[in-house]
């Protein structure tokens, strides 16, 4: 059954969102119809405001509402330490524990020629610019532990080492809360390679 044109337009827009199918979109549309008018309009205004004000940080590529993001403009952060991540969502994951006090650099993906992603399509040139400034002591490469993520890490290390910057890679292995029994071969191999002495 066809709904009213306004409902159909809303459903068509909601279907464009990830993980939302026609049925879910219809449920959301009816929820918004039944919700208080102010609540529904607040959502519309929040989307509009986000689109108008949120942009990408000119230094690191994180999301920001000014030229620099909250992390890059925080004076308590250590600017000599840069953690390189693939996406903003990875940055969010690193910020969650709150223990990292350095800055970030968002690449916008990882090298994958089979998907058409070449070095020019990533924010590699701005990263090298930051490393060339001379204020960076260490760069931590935190790309995903996939084959393409590893290749990106190797590529970045090759570019960064001649600049006199210490290049490190995040540790990899068995996730906390899981079992060794269920780990795949590559994870077990990586966990063994990255073993360290027990202190204390």
């Amino acid at each position: 059954m066809k709904l009213t044109p306004a409902m159909e337009t809303l459903i068509a827009e909601l279907v464009k969102l990830p993980t939302i199918g026609r049925k879910s979109a219809q449920r959301l549309a009816f929820h918004l119809l039944r919700a208080k008018r102010d609540d529904a309009l607040a959502l519309a205004r929040a989307i509009e405001r986000m689109r108008e004000t949120v942009r990408f940080c000119a230094q690191c590529g994180n999301i920001a509402e000014a030229e620099r993001c909250g992390i890059c403009s925080d004076p308590s952060r250590d600017p000599s330490l840069i953690c390189v991540v693939e996406e903003v969502t990875d940055l969010v994951a690193f910020e969650r524990p709150g223990s990292f006090r350095g800055l970030y650099h968002v690449l916008g993906g990882c090298l994958s020629p089979l998907h058409g992603v070449t070095p020019e399509k990533l924010a590699i040139a701005p990263l090298m610019e930051r490393l060339r400034s001379g204020s960076v002591r260490e760069v931590i490469i935190a790309t995903n532990p996939s084959v393409d993520g590893e290749a990106t890490a190797l590529y970045l290390a090759k570019l960064a080492r001649p600049l006199g910057v210490r290049v490190t890679r995040i540790g990899m292995g068995i996730p906390i809360g899981s079992s060794v029994e269920f780990a795949d071969e590559i994870t077990v191999q990586k966990a063994l390679e990255g073993r360290r002495e027990i202190e204390g």
Binding site: S146, D148, F182, D184
Partner: peptide, 11 residues
């Protein structure tokens, strides 16, 4: 993160 097939499905 808990999937057993994650590591196998790599290019």
């Amino acid at each position: 993160i808990r999937s057993r097939d994650r590591g196998a499905l790599e290019p």
